[in-house]
Design a protein around this nucleic acid. Structure first.
Lengths: 229, 229
DNA sequence: CGCCAACTTGAGTGCCGTCAAAGTTTGTGG
DNA sequence: CCACAAACTTTGACGGCACTCAAGTTGGCG
């Protein structure tokens, strides 16, 4: 295994208050692994043996119903910890983590969690902040689903993706990982058909441009207006 | 202020590992207060000055949209901490806590939070477990809203309330705090009209009985069946 | 006894899901 | 390099669930 560079972690919140020496030690205990798009990093209900730091790529936190439908609860950008069951006193993962794009993650055996919390200043605090943010996001999602129409939810989801993961391109801002109509529908609790119709409509009005698995937002402001009506 | 009895806290998870002497000290720092039904214990966005232990009554965790609609994200039973913004590194409350019934809560100034975490064994762990449970519940709710019809959601909500707060009565199990059609509709993201129609229907079939603000479930099993179809 | 909140019920309608079919892009193996 | 399959996308037709609007009833409280 190639020796990992310290700069990978120095700027990430859970580790940002640590000294080089400490980060070195943390890296030496880590495994690094690449994941293809669309695979599970860990699965709901399985014993929580490791926790992860997503270095590159995007991950969907997914729950699967009895009838096999998938519901996406969260999208996680690079630089966050995932699979931190231990932080909330669980010994199995509470949800499945699927890669949305090709991804790279470090991981550590779960028994190191307590060490990290005890030895590294700020590690626990920052982890719990992340947890709090996620709780907030999930609550927002409930509010959205309870009060908004499908059109507004899809507009919001697009805006959120653009903000989190947008990359400037010629005609606007592109979501920088492959995303299908199906993915968007799971994110917004609707069907791929409805998403397709909406995107077609918006494309005709010049708000977005899309090809297979790629979406470019040309007029974010118009989407904001849509999302609030 | 009357001296509070130690037995109030001894059996509650965040404090259950502590000695009598420690609990005494914690109680001496607490304020105790009664709340009428339907009032806010604290409000979203306000500075998080105190954290609370709900001793009696029920609390709805509510978010209010720009247009004034209320959405209930969680129901909290007695024996849980609320308003623990500090635990997730926030200094304002992330949601509003409304009493669903007359309630009783202890509270402490937020600056004691760090003391509690540092000095009392198990306090932090148990608090984070609670947090994790809430994250799980909220995610369940998203899945429910994404995949189930209104009828099933209402049936589920009723079952959950009965499990959390049910009290045996002559003809079945009664939800032991006043709850309106409106409350149920905010809990399940529908309208009071639809809830009213559903309850009327179920009443005709003998599944439930209801008068103003009171609901008795006569046949929980039938509701389970409904909720899963 | 009057008022108000809570609840009920009916009628109409529109959003969006389901069903169905066809078109387009990408990748793969011969 | 072409054929073909698989994955993704589009579009139309139809219908039902649940929302809105509207009117009225019930029950509790001062």
């Amino acid at each position: 295994m190639p020796r990992l560079d310290e700069s990978l972690l120095t700027h990430l919140p859970p580790f940002s208050r640590l000294e080089k020496r400490q980060i070195r030690r943390i890296l030496d205990q880590a495994s690094s692994r690449r994941y293809d798009a669309g695979v599970a990093i860990f699965q709901e209900g399985h014993p929580a043996e490791r926790f992860f730091m997503l270095l590159d790529g995007y991950v969907r936190v997914v729950r699967i119903t009895a009838t096999g439908e998938q519901v996406t609860a969260l999208h996680i950008p690079p630089g966050q910890l995932i699979g931190i069951a231990r932080a909330i006193g669980r010994d199995t993962y509470p949800a499945t983590a699927m890669t949305a794009s090709e991804s790279l993650a470090l991981s550590w055996p779960m028994h190191l969690w307590d060490n990290f919390v005890a030895e590294y200043d700020g590690f626990a605090t920052e982890s719990y902040k992340t947890l709090g943010q996620r709780l907030g996001e999930v609550q927002n999602k409930i509010v959205e689903m309870a009060t908004q129409q499908v059109e507004q939810r899809v507009a919001n989801a697009l805006l959120r993706l653009v903000n989190q993961t947008g990359r400037k391109v010629e005609n606007g801002i592109e979501i920088d990982f492959p995303i299908t109509r199906q993915d968007l529908s799971e994110l917004t609790a609707t069907t791929l058909h409805t998403v397709s119709r909406l995107l077609s409509g918006w494309e005709k009005q010049g708000l977005v441009e899309s090809r297979r698995k790629r979406i470019v937002v040309r007029d974010p402001h118009a989407l904001v207006v849509l999302s609030q009506k």
